[in-house]
């Protein structure tokens, strides 16, 4: 059904008039111009498209936009404030936790959500939370190190 959906996107009140069954991924990318959230499979199986809805990581490729109505949505673009990287992003840079970078927005956002819920997540908890996010380049070891360092420091 075509209707106007309102939600908070990266801290800003946002409205879009779209078919409310459309998936959040395509609304973010195609209607709102936020291309940082990536398409990897469209089936909820890779995590490239991960965004945060009310503190929970969701796969935006299988989340209808109507599910975001009235909620707080955070995408990769919302993690760095006025050009300043978040501590988690800084840690990804420091640990070289990426290669091609295509999975990276999904990884960072998924880990951000984890740390929102469990600021001091253990390595085991991190592995469990990240296990459905795929990285073909094999940056996993570095991604774990990057998240763990922030979890140990407690900052995000």
């Amino acid at each position: 059904m075509e209707r106007t959906i309102s939600f908070t996107l990266n801290g800003k009140p946002t409205q879009v008039s779209v078919d409310d069954e459309r998936m959040l991924l395509w609304v973010l990318r195609g209607e709102l111009g936020l291309e940082g959230t990536k398409f990897g499979c469209g089936e909820g199986l890779c995590g490239s498209c991960t965004v945060i809805v009310d503190k929970t990581a969701v796969r935006s490729c299988v989340t209808p936009v109507k599910d975001a109505a009235g909620r707080q949505v955070i995408t990769i673009e919302g993690l760095s404030q006025s050009g300043k990287l978040s501590p988690l992003q800084e840690s990804f840079v420091k640990h070289n936790a990426f290669q091609c970078g295509y999975c990276t927005p999904g990884m960072v956002v998924n880990a951000h959500a984890l740390l929102l819920q469990k600021p001091h997540a253990s390595r085991e908890e991190i592995i469990k939370a990240m296990d459905d996010n795929l990285c073909r380049c094999g940056a996993q070891t570095r991604i774990l190190d990057a998240i763990e360092e922030v979890a140990k420091g407690g900052a995000r």
Partner: peptide, 19 residues
Amino acid sequence: RKDAVDKVSGKARYAGDIT
């Protein structure tokens, strides 16, 4: 790495991100 900041902040543009 020179590509680090673009990649962790979602600014890196791939062929399918060009609009």
